[in-house]
Design a protein around this nucleic acid. Sequence first.
DNA 1: GTCTATAACTCGATAGAC
DNA 2: GTCTATCGAGTTATAGAC
Lengths: 202, 202
Amino acid sequence: MVNKQTTSEDSILLAAKTIFSVKGKDGASMQEIADEAGINKALLHYYFRNKDLLFEKVFFTELQKFSPILKNKIASDMGLFEKIESICETYIQMAIDNPFVPVFVISEINKQPELFIHKMFADDLPDFPKFSKQIEREVELGHIKAIQPQHLVMNILSMCVFPFLMKPMFLYGMKISKEQYHELMLQRMQEVPKFIIDSIKK
Amino acid sequence: MVNKQTTSEDSILLAAKTIFSVKGKDGASMQEIADEAGINKALLHYYFRNKDLLFEKVFFTELQKFSPILKNKIASDMGLFEKIESICETYIQMAIDNPFVPVFVISEINKQPELFIHKMFADDLPDFPKFSKQIEREVELGHIKAIQPQHLVMNILSMCVFPFLMKPMFLYGMKISKEQYHELMLQRMQEVPKFIIDSIKK
DNA sequence: GTCTATAACTCGATAGAC
DNA sequence: GTCTATCGAGTTATAGAC
């Protein structure tokens, strides 16, 4: 039997995700989360013991869904252009579905790098060296223009993720609505790989 | 007479900049900052009255140095390619000189967007519509490939700033030293505009 | 499992001596 | 200007009834 009702535990996790994503771990209070979840503060401790554990539960379970998908894409045997398209699509779709994750990752990674990386990937890092080798090979074969793999990788990730980090700024600076912004992000699933491939192809 | 000695006020500002940049406003404590500055907690309040004012002092004085420079670049009458080169160089140099600023901006902008933007630019926003018009004109004239200005602007900012946000991740993922990383960032002052121009030129 | 009540604690802020 | 000592608000966390 699957229980379709929302349990207290579920509403806590959802509420915590919402509050943490807006205010960050330090900015959020347990009281707020309890209110948002429509339950009592003491229940938070009953289910998750303390704030740190609640935070980790919410955050890393979300992240660990992504990590294997991405790892597979990066290490796959796809051709370079196809792989770039696939990586961009995955990253952008993830960010659309979980707009809070990028901000989370950036702030946490700059506080406790080793701890964060360890918890996110659980010692199972994406195989960037393999991807780098693939890029170098394409350059040597003369299929694409000369570029250092590090720069290409940075460029790919940057254009996929950064617009989500700067969303409030872009909304304000470009004078567009949230709907128009969302539309732009959908476009970027095609636009970003196109922009990259236009740059490196001969 | 110029006083070459480091005053308490100076050491507080430096310490605050360091601590705030790593832990954020909420994560940092006044005690930590006092310790880092080698002075007493009460002195922080003597000089800056409270935590919010200290934070604003450190952060916005730093930011307001940049804002007019950037504004001028974006609204200038330079040709498009030249302007892109100039914007990238400015952004990347800023980030190299103040590696803590990007992380700051991202976390604060996602907490209190309107307040932040207002304090950063003091109602004197960069003229993005003008820059957008310039891009549209170049497309119409057939000088560059068709691209929406919003995407091009996002791409420029992304590739300049994002690598600084992900520094700890890149260091770990690419297995490089801090010196090598710094070298990569210096390269990007040429590499990023080159990458962009390669993509949009016909 | 869920609640109320409260203990224990952290941290920003102030008072007051020097 | 600088310090020690301490207050008081806000928050995490627990005890204990139901």
